[in-house]
């Protein structure tokens, strides 16, 4: 199968700090890659490099030829600012269409329909007019996922998506991830929560001293 993104000879770092080299890896449609490693091993930096928010010190990140800008859905770790932001779920999900909206000052009917479809797909359509700050952690993550899906996303980058969720919401979230990956979405997920993540992932990338890229035998 054609790979969506392929990383070769990557060397990551931030500031003046150089990290251990990252093993070569690739992600294709339907793959769910789980990135693990201790704190400071470059997991978030790797996601930022794939999202184009940072540059690797060396190496190449290559996308499939038919991959377009705006097809990456990136869920950064949430800051305290967003948690009390007065926005409706619909407004947040709709902003996933910002790349295709471009210079147009309003959203087209088609884009509004996409937003609704994304909410239905994740089961949050009844929350459309609720305020983002009144949602539970799990509902917030689903809102941000819906935003990514709304933008015609083919590659989903998740940075510790289950941080701060309770056990039930976490299990629910991983079920959702498995479903999305079965639908053909490529997923790269950084996490500390090994057991649950391993159950959902097809590949595992370990960063740090004993870095490796492996297929998850236990999957399926």
């Amino acid at each position: 199968m054609q790979k969506l993104v392929e990383c070769r000879d990557l060397l990551l770092g931030y500031g003046t700090h150089v990290l251990a080299p990252c093993p070569d890896f690739n992600v294709g449609p339907g793959d769910c890659l789980c990135v693990v490693g201790h704190n400071g091993s470059g997991k978030t930096t790797l996601l930022k490099c794939i999202a184009g928010l940072a540059k690797p010190l060396a190496g190449t990140i290559e996308f499939a030829s038919d991959f377009e800008d705006g097809q990456i859905g990136y869920l950064p770790q949430q800051g305290p600012m967003q948690r009390d932001f007065p926005a409706s779920v619909r407004e947040v999900v709709q902003s996933g269409c910002q790349a295709r909206r471009g210079w147009r000052p309003f959203y087209s009917r088609g884009e509004k329909r996409r937003a609704l479809a994304a909410m239905v797909r994740l089961g949050i359509a009844p929350l459309a007019d609720r305020c983002y700050r009144e949602l539970s952690g799990g509902q917030r993550q689903k809102t941000l996922l819906a935003r990514a899906l709304c933008g015609n996303c083919r590659l989903l980058l998740l940075d510790e998506p289950t941080n701060g969720l309770d056990a039930e919401a976490t299990a629910d979230f991983y079920r959702l991830i498995s479903r999305l990956s079965a639908d053909g979405l490529a997923i790269v997920m950084v996490t500390h929560d090994l057991t649950a993540a391993l159950a959902a992932s097809t590949h595992i990338l370990t960063l740090g001293e004993d870095a490796s890229f492996k297929t998850n035998e236990r999957h399926g």
């Binding site: 926005a87 309003f106 959203y107």
Partner: peptide, 22 residues
């Protein structure tokens, strides 16, 4: 008014807006 949606994008999540090419 012209940049209303862009203002929302940038205010709610600047990192995401940047990843979207803003």
């Amino acid at each position: 008014l012209f940049f209303y949606h862009r203002i929302f994008d940038m205010t709610f999540d600047e990192t995401y807006a940047k990843a979207c090419g803003a």
